[in-house]
Amino acid sequence: MTRRPSLPGADELFRPTGPADGVAPGWVERAGGPARRGTPRQKHTSKITVYVSDEELLALEHARLALRGTHGLTVDRGRMVREAIAVVLADLDEHGEESVLVRRLRHDE
């Protein structure tokens, strides 16, 4: 009996990560047009840097742990941020002036 671990093959490591149906990543079809969605775990081609406070980072980590512990969802912080962005942008598309983003940004002025 060998003590070497079983490793995944090349087919498993280099599998396509995008949707097979031709819909662009991050979008799903709905009545009236595409709906925003965060992109699933995949290689992303663009990067931004966002600075957050210690409290915001701690809250994000608490949310990640709650998703894992309470809801059984294992996601990284990047995925959570992409989903949050998708939710806020979808709300802006749907509600415009009355969106959460517009109201919160106006409140900060």
Rank of each mutant, 00 (worst) to 15 (best):
V50Q: 03
G33I: 02
L60T: 06
G32R: 01
T70V: 10
R68G: 07
H95I: 05
G72P: 14
L7D: 12
A24L: 12
D76Y: 00
R36H: 08
T39P: 00
R77Q: 05
E97Y: 03
P40D: 13
R30N: 11
P25I: 10
E109K: 12
V100E: 15
G26N: 06
V88E: 14
A90K: 13
G69H: 07
A10I: 08
G18R: 13
E61I: 01
A20C: 10
V87Y: 11
D54W: 00
H95L: 08
H44S: 08
K47M: 04
P19K: 15
E97H: 06
H107L: 11
Y51W: 00
R37Y: 01
A20M: 06
F14Y: 05
G32P: 03
G38S: 05
T74Y: 03
V23T: 14
A59I: 00
E61A: 12
K47R: 08
R36D: 04
V28T: 13
L101M: 15
A84P: 09
T45E: 13
A63M: 15
T2F: 02
T39V: 11
A66G: 13
S53G: 09
V75A: 09
D54V: 05
L73K: 04
A84Y: 11
L60R: 10
L67C: 12
P8G: 10
Y51E: 05
I85G: 05
L92S: 00
R68L: 06
Q42P: 00
R64P: 10
R103A: 15
H71P: 01
R15G: 01
K47Y: 01
